[in-house]
């Protein structure tokens, strides 16, 4: 067969162009990002501690021991000290971490799925559908989030589920915008026309051909959404509309600690530190992913 010899002339794939190396290149860029590594490690430690910590500590996070109230950290059996009712602060922090991280991840999942759907439909169909959907996104984006959260929270019975939904409802817009922009440009590419040419249904083109090419920016936006969701949960719990005592959350622990700021500052410092640590870690991770997955560097 005469065409066989052309195969050799056509040039072999250059070794540096293989997918394997490409992935490694993204990984290498990520590993160069010191803060992102730090963030990843911190998140891993937090997740593991909150997941298995409560099974290990001898103290129940709800057990009240009036005799050992306001014990400062490292003074006795309680490593992080105790609160105004003698409850172990470390146990409470870990249980609160479960709540915050769960809400963070769940809200991220919800808002990413919803935002991706809205963005994909808007970007793929464009024209009037796209214009209407994106103006709706702009309108929701204009709402002052925290007031919206508080208003909604005031009407709805607070629980893990409702708080997650409320937070997701105020944070899906960024993903929607990212996905809309991506799909709008991807659908003009020839491979989208090729899919149209073979008679592929819209859902196939949208979800199987185009969206996989937009994964990197979606992952970045999702990571940053986790940070924002944790912060929002803290806001509403701090203001008393979120997780209700005695169940702890980093936000309502901070709220409690206000009265004892002078006498027992550790009650405020530790939950505050946790929020800062979690939020900055997710932000660093997001930044690192953004740099590592930037397609412009993928030449």
């Amino acid at each position: 067969m005469p065409v066989d010899r052309i195969d050799e002339l056509g040039g072999r794939p250059e070794p540096e162009q293989t997918l394997h190396v490409n992935r490694n290149r993204a990984l290498r860029r990520f590993l160069r990002h010191r803060l992102a590594i730090l963030g990843t490690v911190t998140i891993a430690v937090l997740v593991i501690a909150c997941a298995i910590g409560p099974y290990i500590t001898p103290f129940d996070h709800l057990f009240i021991d009036i005799r050992s109230r306001f014990q400062p950290p490292v003074s006795g059996a309680h490593v992080f000290g105790t609160d105004e009712m003698g409850r172990d602060l470390l146990s409470r922090l870990m249980m609160a971490g479960r709540v915050s991280l769960t809400i963070g991840f769940a809200a991220m999942m919800l808002s990413t799925i919803f935002g991706t759907l809205v963005g994909a439909v808007a970007g793929y169909y464009g024209r009037k559908t796209g214009a209407v959907l994106m103006r709706f996104v702009d309108a929701v984006l204009c709402f002052p989030n925290i007031f919206l959260l508080l208003t909604l929270a005031a009407f709805i019975q607070p629980s893990l589920m409702t708080i997650t939904i409320i937070i997701a409802a105020t944070s899906w817009m960024e993903v929607a915008r990212v996905v809309e922009g991506q799909l709008r440009s991807l659908r003009e590419r020839d491979f989208a026309v090729a899919a149209e040419m073979i008679g592929a249904p819209n859902s196939h083109i949208m979800f199987k051909e185009l969206l996989p090419n937009a994964v990197a920016p979606i992952v970045v936006a999702a990571t940053l959404t986790v940070a924002r969701a944790i912060l929002m949960e803290s806001y509403i719990s701090f203001l008393g509309y979120g997780i209700q005592p005695p169940e702890p959350s980093w936000g309502n622990m901070l709220n409690n600690a206000q009265q004892y700021l002078n006498s027992a500052p550790w009650l405020a410092i530790f939950p505050g530190l946790m929020i800062t640590l979690a939020v900055t870690s997710f932000n660093f991770l997001g930044d690192g992913l953004r740099d590592a997955l930037d397609p412009r560097l993928e030449v």
Binding site: R189, D190, F191, V193, A194, A195, M197, I198, E209, P212, N213
Partner: peptide, 12 residues
């Protein structure tokens, strides 16, 4: 069927 001009944009 259609064969495209730009072989870099026509394959997913």
């Amino acid at each position: 069927q259609l064969i495209f001009q730009d072989p870099f944009s026509s394959l997913n």
